[in-house]
Design a protein around this nucleic acid. Structure first.
Ligand SMILES: [Mn+2]
Ligand SMILES: [Mn+2]
Ligand SMILES: [Zn+2]
Ligand SMILES: [Zn+2]
Lengths: 144, 144
DNA sequence: TACTATATAAGATTTATTCCTATATGATGT
DNA sequence: ACATCATATAGGAATAAATCTTATATAGTA
Protein backbone atom coordinates (compact mmCIF):
# COMPACT_ATOMS: atom_id res chain seq x y z
CA UNK A 1 0.00 0.00 0.00
CA UNK A 2 1.72 3.15 -1.22
CA UNK A 3 1.32 6.52 0.49
CA UNK A 4 -1.16 7.61 -2.17
CA UNK A 5 -3.37 4.57 -2.13
CA UNK A 6 -3.40 4.90 1.66
CA UNK A 7 -4.73 8.41 1.36
CA UNK A 8 -7.43 7.34 -1.10
CA UNK A 9 -8.46 4.50 1.19
CA UNK A 10 -8.74 6.91 4.07
CA UNK A 11 -10.98 9.26 2.15
CA UNK A 12 -13.27 6.40 1.16
CA UNK A 13 -13.49 5.06 4.70
CA UNK A 14 -14.22 8.51 6.09
CA UNK A 15 -17.30 8.53 3.89
CA UNK A 16 -18.37 5.10 4.99
CA UNK A 17 -17.69 3.65 1.56
CA UNK A 18 -16.25 0.20 1.06
CA UNK A 19 -12.67 0.20 -0.04
CA UNK A 20 -12.03 -1.75 -3.23
CA UNK A 21 -8.94 -1.66 -5.42
CA UNK A 22 -11.05 -0.33 -8.29
CA UNK A 23 -12.32 2.57 -6.20
CA UNK A 24 -8.86 3.46 -5.04
CA UNK A 25 -7.57 3.43 -8.60
CA UNK A 26 -10.46 5.55 -9.85
CA UNK A 27 -10.05 8.15 -7.14
CA UNK A 28 -6.33 8.39 -7.78
CA UNK A 29 -6.95 8.67 -11.52
CA UNK A 30 -9.26 11.63 -11.09
CA UNK A 31 -6.85 13.38 -8.75
CA UNK A 32 -3.89 12.60 -10.98
CA UNK A 33 -5.21 14.48 -13.97
CA UNK A 34 -5.48 17.74 -12.06
CA UNK A 35 -7.93 18.48 -14.84
CA UNK A 36 -11.63 17.83 -15.42
CA UNK A 37 -11.76 14.35 -16.88
CA UNK A 38 -14.81 12.61 -18.26
CA UNK A 39 -15.73 9.07 -17.28
CA UNK A 40 -14.18 7.47 -20.34
CA UNK A 41 -10.84 9.16 -19.78
CA UNK A 42 -10.85 7.82 -16.22
CA UNK A 43 -11.78 4.41 -17.61
CA UNK A 44 -8.87 4.43 -20.04
CA UNK A 45 -6.46 5.53 -17.32
CA UNK A 46 -7.55 2.90 -14.82
CA UNK A 47 -7.65 0.24 -17.53
CA UNK A 48 -3.88 0.25 -17.67
CA UNK A 49 -3.75 -1.12 -14.14
CA UNK A 50 -7.02 -3.08 -14.26
CA UNK A 51 -7.48 -4.28 -17.82
CA UNK A 52 -10.78 -5.97 -16.92
CA UNK A 53 -12.43 -3.07 -15.16
CA UNK A 54 -15.93 -2.42 -16.41
CA UNK A 55 -17.15 0.92 -17.66
CA UNK A 56 -20.12 0.50 -15.41
CA UNK A 57 -17.86 0.37 -12.38
CA UNK A 58 -16.22 3.61 -13.42
CA UNK A 59 -19.52 5.40 -13.99
CA UNK A 60 -21.03 4.04 -10.79
CA UNK A 61 -17.97 4.90 -8.74
CA UNK A 62 -17.59 8.44 -10.05
CA UNK A 63 -21.21 9.14 -9.40
CA UNK A 64 -20.94 7.67 -5.89
CA UNK A 65 -17.90 9.83 -5.17
CA UNK A 66 -19.71 12.91 -6.34
CA UNK A 67 -22.65 12.14 -4.07
CA UNK A 68 -20.29 11.79 -1.14
CA UNK A 69 -18.55 14.99 -2.20
CA UNK A 70 -15.21 13.26 -2.56
CA UNK A 71 -15.06 14.84 -6.01
CA UNK A 72 -17.11 17.45 -7.82
CA UNK A 73 -18.41 17.88 -11.34
CA UNK A 74 -18.73 20.72 -13.77
CA UNK A 75 -21.05 19.73 -16.60
CA UNK A 76 -24.18 17.66 -16.82
CA UNK A 77 -23.61 14.49 -18.77
CA UNK A 78 -26.23 12.19 -20.17
CA UNK A 79 -28.58 15.14 -20.22
CA UNK A 80 -29.98 16.66 -23.34
CA UNK A 81 -29.00 20.15 -24.36
CA UNK A 82 -31.53 22.76 -23.29
CA UNK A 83 -32.41 25.71 -25.48
CA UNK A 84 -33.59 29.10 -24.33
CA UNK A 85 -35.98 31.47 -26.10
CA UNK A 86 -34.88 34.28 -23.79
CA UNK A 87 -31.91 36.02 -25.40
CA UNK A 88 -31.66 38.82 -22.87
CA UNK A 89 -28.94 38.67 -20.27
CA UNK A 90 -30.07 36.47 -17.43
CA UNK A 91 -29.05 33.67 -15.10
CA UNK A 92 -30.38 30.26 -14.12
CA UNK A 93 -31.69 28.17 -11.28
CA UNK A 94 -31.17 24.52 -12.21
CA UNK A 95 -32.89 21.75 -10.30
CA UNK A 96 -30.55 18.83 -9.83
CA UNK A 97 -33.42 16.42 -9.41
CA UNK A 98 -35.96 17.19 -12.15
CA UNK A 99 -33.71 19.35 -14.33
CA UNK A 100 -36.24 22.17 -14.44
CA UNK A 101 -34.53 25.43 -15.33
CA UNK A 102 -35.78 28.84 -14.24
CA UNK A 103 -34.55 32.26 -15.21
CA UNK A 104 -33.65 34.98 -12.81
CA UNK A 105 -32.26 38.44 -13.38
CA UNK A 106 -29.90 40.46 -11.23
CA UNK A 107 -28.25 43.60 -12.52
CA UNK A 108 -25.26 43.07 -10.29
CA UNK A 109 -24.56 39.73 -12.03
CA UNK A 110 -24.74 41.13 -15.54
CA UNK A 111 -21.22 42.55 -15.66
CA UNK A 112 -19.22 40.30 -13.38
CA UNK A 113 -15.54 41.13 -13.62
CA UNK A 114 -13.53 37.95 -13.91
CA UNK A 115 -10.01 38.46 -12.49
CA UNK A 116 -7.76 39.46 -15.36
CA UNK A 117 -5.15 36.91 -14.34
CA UNK A 118 -7.63 34.16 -15.22
CA UNK A 119 -8.55 35.80 -18.50
CA UNK A 120 -5.06 36.23 -19.84
CA UNK A 121 -5.43 33.23 -22.09
CA UNK A 122 -9.16 33.19 -22.70
CA UNK A 123 -11.67 35.19 -24.71
CA UNK A 124 -14.98 35.27 -22.89
CA UNK A 125 -18.18 35.08 -24.87
CA UNK A 126 -20.62 34.88 -22.01
CA UNK A 127 -20.45 34.94 -18.23
CA UNK A 128 -23.39 33.59 -16.27
CA UNK A 129 -24.27 32.49 -12.78
CA UNK A 130 -25.53 28.93 -12.33
CA UNK A 131 -27.43 28.19 -9.16
CA UNK A 132 -27.80 24.44 -8.74
CA UNK A 133 -30.20 23.13 -6.15
CA UNK A 134 -33.63 21.64 -5.58
CA UNK A 135 -36.83 23.26 -6.80
CA UNK A 136 -39.92 23.59 -4.66
CA UNK A 137 -41.88 20.86 -6.45
CA UNK A 138 -39.07 18.39 -5.85
CA UNK A 139 -38.86 19.33 -2.19
CA UNK A 140 -42.60 18.83 -1.77
CA UNK A 141 -42.44 15.52 -3.59
CA UNK A 142 -39.69 14.42 -1.20
CA UNK A 143 -41.77 15.10 1.89
CA UNK A 144 -44.65 13.06 0.49
CA UNK B 1 -49.43 33.70 -42.81
CA UNK B 2 -50.44 34.52 -39.25
CA UNK B 3 -48.97 37.41 -37.29
CA UNK B 4 -46.69 35.01 -35.42
CA UNK B 5 -45.33 33.10 -38.37
CA UNK B 6 -44.67 36.49 -39.96
CA UNK B 7 -42.57 37.49 -37.01
CA UNK B 8 -40.60 34.25 -37.10
CA UNK B 9 -39.98 34.69 -40.83
CA UNK B 10 -38.70 38.18 -40.22
CA UNK B 11 -36.24 37.03 -37.60
CA UNK B 12 -34.91 34.32 -39.90
CA UNK B 13 -34.53 36.71 -42.82
CA UNK B 14 -32.77 39.29 -40.67
CA UNK B 15 -30.14 36.64 -40.04
CA UNK B 16 -29.82 35.75 -43.69
CA UNK B 17 -31.33 32.32 -43.11
CA UNK B 18 -33.66 30.68 -45.59
CA UNK B 19 -37.24 30.62 -44.49
CA UNK B 20 -38.78 27.18 -44.50
CA UNK B 21 -42.02 26.09 -42.86
CA UNK B 22 -40.06 23.73 -40.63
CA UNK B 23 -37.84 26.52 -39.36
CA UNK B 24 -40.77 28.79 -38.67
CA UNK B 25 -42.53 26.03 -36.74
CA UNK B 26 -39.39 25.21 -34.74
CA UNK B 27 -38.75 28.81 -33.80
CA UNK B 28 -42.35 29.28 -32.72
CA UNK B 29 -42.23 26.06 -30.73
CA UNK B 30 -39.19 27.20 -28.75
CA UNK B 31 -40.73 30.59 -28.06
CA UNK B 32 -44.10 29.06 -27.19
CA UNK B 33 -42.78 27.02 -24.28
CA UNK B 34 -41.43 30.07 -22.48
CA UNK B 35 -39.29 27.42 -20.85
CA UNK B 36 -35.98 25.71 -21.67
CA UNK B 37 -36.97 22.86 -23.95
CA UNK B 38 -34.68 20.13 -25.19
CA UNK B 39 -34.54 19.14 -28.83
CA UNK B 40 -36.85 16.18 -28.47
CA UNK B 41 -39.54 18.24 -26.80
CA UNK B 42 -39.35 20.67 -29.71
CA UNK B 43 -39.50 17.70 -32.09
CA UNK B 44 -42.63 16.35 -30.44
CA UNK B 45 -44.30 19.77 -30.48
CA UNK B 46 -43.54 20.46 -34.13
CA UNK B 47 -44.48 16.89 -35.09
CA UNK B 48 -48.12 17.70 -34.46
CA UNK B 49 -48.08 20.15 -37.34
CA UNK B 50 -45.45 18.35 -39.46
CA UNK B 51 -45.80 14.64 -38.79
CA UNK B 52 -42.94 13.84 -41.17
CA UNK B 53 -40.37 16.26 -39.81
CA UNK B 54 -37.04 14.60 -39.17
CA UNK B 55 -35.20 14.73 -35.87
CA UNK B 56 -32.13 15.77 -37.77
CA UNK B 57 -33.92 18.85 -39.04
CA UNK B 58 -34.86 19.83 -35.51
CA UNK B 59 -31.33 19.35 -34.18
CA UNK B 60 -29.76 21.13 -37.16
CA UNK B 61 -32.18 24.01 -36.98
CA UNK B 62 -31.87 24.58 -33.24
CA UNK B 63 -28.12 24.58 -33.51
CA UNK B 64 -28.25 27.00 -36.46
CA UNK B 65 -30.52 29.33 -34.52
CA UNK B 66 -28.18 29.27 -31.57
CA UNK B 67 -25.23 30.16 -33.80
CA UNK B 68 -27.17 33.09 -35.20
CA UNK B 69 -28.19 34.05 -31.66
CA UNK B 70 -31.87 33.78 -32.46
CA UNK B 71 -32.11 31.58 -29.39
CA UNK B 72 -29.75 30.69 -26.56
CA UNK B 73 -28.92 27.56 -24.64
CA UNK B 74 -28.25 26.67 -21.05
CA UNK B 75 -26.66 23.23 -20.87
CA UNK B 76 -24.22 21.36 -23.01
CA UNK B 77 -25.80 18.41 -24.73
CA UNK B 78 -24.04 15.57 -26.43
CA UNK B 79 -21.10 16.19 -24.12
CA UNK B 80 -19.89 13.83 -21.49
CA UNK B 81 -20.13 14.74 -17.86
CA UNK B 82 -16.89 16.22 -16.51
CA UNK B 83 -15.63 15.46 -13.01
CA UNK B 84 -13.50 17.67 -10.85
CA UNK B 85 -10.89 16.65 -8.29
CA UNK B 86 -10.90 20.17 -6.88
CA UNK B 87 -13.51 20.32 -4.14
CA UNK B 88 -12.67 23.82 -2.97
CA UNK B 89 -14.96 26.66 -3.98
CA UNK B 90 -14.00 27.81 -7.45
CA UNK B 91 -15.32 28.78 -10.85
CA UNK B 92 -14.78 27.75 -14.45
CA UNK B 93 -13.62 28.92 -17.84
CA UNK B 94 -15.16 26.60 -20.41
CA UNK B 95 -13.93 26.53 -23.98
CA UNK B 96 -16.83 26.23 -26.37
CA UNK B 97 -14.64 24.76 -29.07
CA UNK B 98 -12.43 22.12 -27.41
CA UNK B 99 -14.36 21.82 -24.17
CA UNK B 100 -11.25 22.35 -22.08
CA UNK B 101 -12.19 23.49 -18.59
CA UNK B 102 -9.97 25.64 -16.41
CA UNK B 103 -10.44 26.67 -12.82
CA UNK B 104 -10.26 30.17 -11.52
CA UNK B 105 -10.81 31.61 -8.09
CA UNK B 106 -12.23 34.94 -7.07
CA UNK B 107 -13.20 35.68 -3.50
CA UNK B 108 -15.87 38.10 -4.61
CA UNK B 109 -17.63 35.28 -6.50
CA UNK B 110 -17.64 32.87 -3.60
CA UNK B 111 -20.66 34.28 -1.80
CA UNK B 112 -22.79 35.72 -4.57
CA UNK B 113 -26.13 36.82 -3.20
CA UNK B 114 -28.90 35.63 -5.45
CA UNK B 115 -31.94 37.96 -5.19
CA UNK B 116 -34.27 36.52 -2.58
CA UNK B 117 -37.25 36.91 -4.90
CA UNK B 118 -35.68 34.30 -7.18
CA UNK B 119 -34.89 32.00 -4.29
CA UNK B 120 -38.33 31.93 -2.74
CA UNK B 121 -39.06 28.56 -4.25
CA UNK B 122 -35.60 27.06 -4.55
CA UNK B 123 -32.99 25.61 -2.22
CA UNK B 124 -29.53 26.37 -3.52
CA UNK B 125 -26.82 23.77 -3.20
CA UNK B 126 -24.11 25.53 -5.15
CA UNK B 127 -23.71 28.84 -6.94
CA UNK B 128 -20.94 29.17 -9.51
CA UNK B 129 -19.85 31.44 -12.29
CA UNK B 130 -19.49 29.90 -15.76
CA UNK B 131 -17.38 31.81 -18.23
CA UNK B 132 -17.90 30.39 -21.71
CA UNK B 133 -15.54 31.42 -24.47
CA UNK B 134 -12.55 30.37 -26.54
CA UNK B 135 -9.27 29.23 -25.01
CA UNK B 136 -5.91 30.43 -26.26
CA UNK B 137 -5.00 27.18 -28.01
CA UNK B 138 -8.21 27.28 -30.00
CA UNK B 139 -7.65 30.89 -30.97
CA UNK B 140 -4.13 30.09 -32.18
CA UNK B 141 -5.40 27.08 -34.09
CA UNK B 142 -7.96 29.33 -35.79
CA UNK B 143 -5.36 31.75 -37.04
CA UNK B 144 -3.30 28.92 -38.53
C1' DT C 1 -13.21 -18.85 8.71
C1' DA C 2 -18.04 -18.23 7.29
C1' DC C 3 -21.62 -15.06 6.24
C1' DT C 4 -24.00 -11.49 3.86
C1' DA C 5 -24.64 -7.18 1.93
C1' DT C 6 -22.59 -4.87 -1.54
C1' DA C 7 -19.48 -4.34 -5.61
C1' DT C 8 -17.94 -5.95 -10.00
C1' DA C 9 -17.54 -7.72 -14.97
C1' DA C 10 -19.35 -8.23 -19.26
C1' DG C 11 -22.39 -7.26 -22.37
C1' DA C 12 -27.05 -5.57 -23.73
C1' DT C 13 -29.91 -1.57 -23.82
C1' DT C 14 -31.34 3.14 -23.89
C1' DT C 15 -30.97 7.91 -25.12
C1' DA C 16 -29.05 11.96 -27.27
C1' DT C 17 -26.96 13.38 -31.16
C1' DT C 18 -24.80 13.21 -35.61
C1' DC C 19 -24.01 11.31 -40.18
C1' DC C 20 -25.45 9.78 -44.83
C1' DT C 21 -27.66 10.31 -49.15
C1' DA C 22 -31.39 10.74 -52.26
C1' DT C 23 -35.01 14.06 -52.91
C1' DA C 24 -37.29 18.51 -52.37
C1' DT C 25 -37.56 23.41 -52.09
C1' DG C 26 -36.47 28.59 -51.31
C1' DA C 27 -34.33 32.40 -53.36
C1' DT C 28 -32.88 34.56 -57.41
C1' DG C 29 -32.54 35.95 -62.10
C1' DT C 30 -35.13 35.48 -66.66
C1' DA D 1 -44.52 32.15 -64.18
C1' DC D 2 -40.04 29.31 -65.05
C1' DA D 3 -35.48 27.42 -64.77
C1' DT D 4 -31.52 27.09 -61.94
C1' DC D 5 -28.93 25.70 -58.14
C1' DA D 6 -27.34 26.09 -53.58
C1' DT D 7 -29.16 24.58 -49.56
C1' DA D 8 -32.64 22.12 -46.60
C1' DT D 9 -35.15 18.03 -45.57
C1' DA D 10 -36.66 13.06 -44.66
C1' DG D 11 -35.62 8.80 -43.28
C1' DG D 12 -32.82 5.80 -41.48
C1' DA D 13 -28.14 4.23 -40.09
C1' DA D 14 -24.36 5.13 -37.10
C1' DT D 15 -22.05 6.83 -32.93
C1' DA D 16 -21.31 7.99 -28.15
C1' DA D 17 -22.60 8.52 -23.31
C1' DA D 18 -24.75 6.46 -19.74
C1' DT D 19 -27.52 2.98 -17.57
C1' DC D 20 -29.38 -1.63 -16.82
C1' DT D 21 -29.12 -6.74 -16.14
C1' DT D 22 -27.50 -10.77 -14.08
C1' DA D 23 -24.25 -13.98 -12.58
C1' DT D 24 -20.07 -13.94 -9.85
C1' DA D 25 -16.74 -12.04 -6.55
C1' DT D 26 -15.35 -9.74 -2.45
C1' DA D 27 -15.04 -6.35 1.75
C1' DG D 28 -16.34 -5.94 6.21
C1' DT D 29 -17.43 -8.28 10.35
C1' DA D 30 -18.99 -11.93 13.59
MN1 LIG E 1 -33.15 31.13 -19.54
MN1 LIG F 1 -12.69 22.81 -11.45
ZN1 LIG G 1 -37.02 19.89 -9.40
ZN1 LIG H 1 -10.30 25.45 -26.64
Amino acid sequence: MSKKTGRAEMILREQGARVTPQRVAILMAVAATGDHPDADSVYRHVSREYPHISRDTVYRTLSMMEEKKIIGSVLFGGASKRYDPNTRKHHHLICLRCRRINDFSAKKFDRLEVPSSAMERFTAVRTTVHVEGICDECQDRNRA
